[in-house]
């Protein structure tokens, strides 16, 4: 019997695989979510109906439902695991250094994944409350037989309707900035954690990671900015 005596799931390395796998899975989710969101750039009733139908499909299709539960599970696992790791890491150094210059040997993002993750968690709660909750349980107008999430979204970033729209746009951009840093370290770190390291492929992974960490958050952030500007 070869199994780890601390239990494969409790070993520090196993927790790292879990972080890596759930993280990369959530990266896939981000791609899907962004693609859907980009429909908001299409204007007029046509765009509205297409977006609303997409939203309807995403909340009712059984296959998507399974995927979404997986995503919820992934998010929760990523959060809980990250929380446990962070607690362990803090306990590993009970007395802090008086002077510590981490900036000389590591990137800021790599040293602040927990902080960035917490910002993203707060954002996530607020974001789900604003849209997911309204879509599922809130009072929402029905247009052409489907819930009109499109208007909810537009109104959210419309200063004429929501007097916090400006602040919200700012917060969304800030959250996406945090995501950019989180992904910047997290993407390539996931591969290292899973033991994928090779002189030829690792630079490619790092490049893709960098690109991903810029493009995805930029894509997400562009929407609130766009909606805020066109409605101001």
């Amino acid at each position: 019997m070869n199994m780890s005596k601390t239990g494969i799931l409790k070993s520090s390395l196993s927790r790292k695989y879990a972080m890596a796998l759930t993280g990369l899975f959530l990266c896939l989710f981000l791609v899907g979510h962004l693609l859907g969101n980009l429909q908001l750039f299409v204007g007029g009733e046509e765009g509205r109906d297409a977006f609303n139908n997409y939203a309807q499909f995403m909340t009712t299709n059984p296959l998507i439902k399974v995927l979404s539960y997986l995503t919820y599970a992934g998010i929760i696992f990523h959060i809980v695991d990250g929380f446990v790791l962070t607690i362990q890491n803090r306990k590993a150094r009970p007395v802090k250094y008086v002077v510590e210059k981490g900036n000389l040997n590591s990137s800021w993002a790599s040293r602040n994944m927990a902080v960035l993750g917490t910002i993203l968690l707060v954002f996530l709660v607020s974001h789900m409350q604003s849209f997911w909750y309204v879509m599922h349980f809130g009072e929402i107008e029905i247009i052409n037989g489907v819930k009109d999430l499109h208007s909810v979204t537009l109104d959210f970033f419309n200063p004429a309707i929501n007097n916090l729209a400006g602040v919200m746009t700012g917060l969304y951009v800030f959250a996406m900035l945090s995501m950019a840093f989180h992904l910047n370290h997290g993407f390539q770190s996931a591969f290292q954690s899973m033991g994928i390291s090779h002189p030829m492929y690792t630079p490619v992974i790092n490049f893709v990671g960098k690109a991903f960490s810029i493009l995805i958050p930029a894509g997400f952030a562009s929407l609130p900015i766009y909606l805020f500007i066109i409605q101001s």
């Binding site: 520090s12 150094r93 981490g102 990137s107």
Partner: peptide, 9 residues
């Protein structure tokens, strides 16, 4: 010991 978070330090 703590866990590795791949900071590379």
């Amino acid at each position: 010991f703590g866990n590795c978070t791949n900071t590379g330090a």
